[in-house]
């Protein structure tokens, strides 16, 4: 069953010009993104800085107003058919920076109870819920409920953030680089916790990360983003096993080999990811792509099916696209 549908989501940020009229331009942070999330699955979103994955997370919760696009939750359009407050109770978010995402002046218990109180739960019950959630995320309520964020370690703070996100009994939790700032041994603990909570509360995750390993470990389906657009999307086995987009392939080869005898010899890409400011038409990746041809700069490249549910935005996978490596029409 489809829980969340996102169609044509777009957000551009105009840049300010300086006094001499220089600068300006528009950041194409999220540029027409369509996907859906099924009940109970984990959708992984992977990409490098500037690909728009964090903006997308904030757009989903309407923390930023989208320029265009429609978000449907349980079949109802958020903002029109479903009030924002209701949607925000059903969708919650865990941020990367565990410290900045907790109010330093509130105890852990008050931070968790805040959401339920706002939604009208009596104070005592909200505190009760906060304590039981603390226990559930592995923090002994008697020891931790009255503590302040600075008295906790990074891993403990992120557990509190997860408890806070669960306090409204959401359907979907958006995890925006939620484990990226943690040490490896703590990251593993938190990932295990997330997997347990998902089963226990019947959650659906949108798991955003720059770390391919973590995304692959967590996700049922994966979206690869590049400069505000989806480059490749599909079931995890398919995207990771039968990678079609040259950018996704480059991301894979950029991962350390983890084998001292098979160290990486050639960098898969040269240079830095460009800024998403006023990108030229055509494929966003063509400037760094080894297979780029003239045709890649003409017109928009659409996501096209490349097998069951696997979609790729690359002319090389589209029969008759005019790219020299494109499969023949017959195929």
């Amino acid at each position: 069953m489809t829980l969340l549908t996102v169609s044509g989501l777009r957000k551009h940020f105009p840049l300010k010009k300086d006094l001499l009229g220089r600068g300006g331009g528009t950041v194409h942070a999220v540029d027409g993104i369509t996907f859906d999330v099924a009940q109970g699955e984990t959708l992984g979103v992977v990409g490098e800085s500037g690909c728009g994955k964090s903006t997308m997370a904030r757009l989903l919760l309407r923390l930023i107003e989208p320029d265009e696009g429609l978000i449907r939750l349980e079949g109802r359009a958020v903002g029109t058919q479903m009030p924002l407050t209701e949607a925000r109770g059903k969708m919650q978010m865990v941020f990367q920076d565990s410290f900045a995402s907790l109010n330093p002046r509130l105890t852990v218990e008050d931070s968790i109870a805040f959401g339920p109180i706002v939604h009208g739960l009596p104070r005592a019950q909200a505190r009760e819920r906060a304590r039981s959630l603390l226990a559930r995320v592995g923090l002994e309520p008697l020891r931790f409920a009255g503590r302040y964020p600075h008295e906790l370690s990074g891993g403990q703070r992120q557990r509190v953030n997860i408890a806070r996100a669960l306090a409204l009994r959401p359907k979907i939790v958006i995890l925006d680089e939620a484990v990226s700032a943690l040490d490896k041994s703590i990251e593993a603990q938190v990932l295990n916790l997330l997997l347990d909570l998902k089963v226990e509360f019947g959650l659906t995750y949108v798991f955003i990360s720059h770390d391919l390993n973590v995304v692959r470990y967590m996700s049922d389906r994966v979206i690869v983003m590049y400069l505000g657009k989806i480059a490749e999307a599909g079931p995890a086995e398919s995207v990771f096993g039968d990678t079609r987009h040259p950018y996704t392939r480059a991301l894979f080869s950029a991962m350390p080999s983890m084998d001292p005898d098979r160290r990486t010899q050639q960098p898969p890409l040269i240079g830095d990811p460009p800024n998403p400011i006023d990108p030229p038409p055509g494929c966003r990746f063509k400037g760094r792509c080894a297979h780029a041809e003239d045709i890649c700069g003409r017109g928009d490249i659409t996501l096209t099916s490349a097998g069951a549910e696997h979609r790729v935005a690359c002319l090389m996978t589209q029969p008759g696209s005019g790219h020299s490596s494109a499969p023949g029409k017959a195929a």
């Binding site: 923390l63 925000r88 978010m93 941020f95 995402s101 959401g115 706002v118 939604h119 953030n161 306090a167």
Partner: peptide, 17 residues
């Protein structure tokens, strides 16, 4: 601009709260 204010908004709290 801090995340905890964003998180509070995401919890459905109004400006006044």
């Amino acid at each position: 601009a801090l995340d905890y204010v964003e998180a509070a908004r995401a919890s459905g709290a109004g400006n006044f709260t």
